[in-house]
Amino acid sequence: MSTQELFVATARKCLSVGKKRMSVAQSLDLAVQVSAVDLGLKPALLFDTNGASADQVQQYLSSLQASQLVSKSLVTLDLNGNTLIVNPVTARSNVKQMFVDGGVAVMDVCHSLEKPTLADPLRGELKSMKHGLLLLLSELEQLTEADKPHYVGEVSEGWNLCTVFGLLLGYPVTYWFDHTKSFGNCLPLTPLMVTTASVTLQEYAGAGHRCCLYSFSIPTALLKEMQSNLENWRLHLEKGFQQQHALKDLTVCQSTVTLPSVCL
Score class of each variant (00 low, 15 high):
Asp101Asn: 07
Val100Asn: 00
Val104Cys: 10
Gly102Gln: 08
Glu125Asp: 13
Asp120Ser: 12
Gly132Asp: 15
Leu136Cys: 11
Val95Ala: 02
Gly102Lys: 01
His111Lys: 14
Val100Ile: 10
Val109Gln: 00
Ser128Pro: 01
Asp120Phe: 11
Leu140Ile: 07
Ala105Thr: 03
Arg123Ala: 13
Gly132Asn: 15
Gly103Cys: 06
Leu137His: 10
Leu134Gly: 00
Pro116Arg: 04
Thr117Asp: 11
Leu135Phe: 08
Asp108Pro: 00
Gly132Lys: 12
Ala119Trp: 03
Glu114Thr: 11
Asp120Ala: 08
Glu125Tyr: 02
Ala105Asp: 11
Phe99Thr: 06
Leu126Gln: 06
Gly132Ile: 07
Val104Phe: 04
Glu125Ser: 15
Leu140Cys: 07
Asp120Cys: 10
Thr117Val: 15
Glu141Gln: 14
Lys127Gly: 00
Met98Asp: 05
Gly132Ala: 12
Lys115Gln: 15
Leu134His: 03
Thr117Leu: 13
Ser128Asp: 12
Met107Thr: 02
His131Pro: 02
Ser128Gly: 04
Glu141Ser: 10
Leu134Asp: 13
Leu113Pro: 02
Leu126Val: 05
Glu139Cys: 07
Lys96Pro: 00
Ser138Asn: 13
Leu113Ser: 05
Ser112Arg: 13
His131Arg: 13
Asp108Phe: 09
Gln97Tyr: 01
Ser128Glu: 13
Lys130Gln: 14
Leu126Asp: 06
Ser112Asn: 01
Leu133Gly: 01
Leu137Ser: 09
Leu118Ala: 11
Gln97Ile: 00
Leu140Ser: 08
Ala105Tyr: 03
Val100Ala: 11
Leu118Thr: 01
Leu113Arg: 12
Asp108Thr: 08
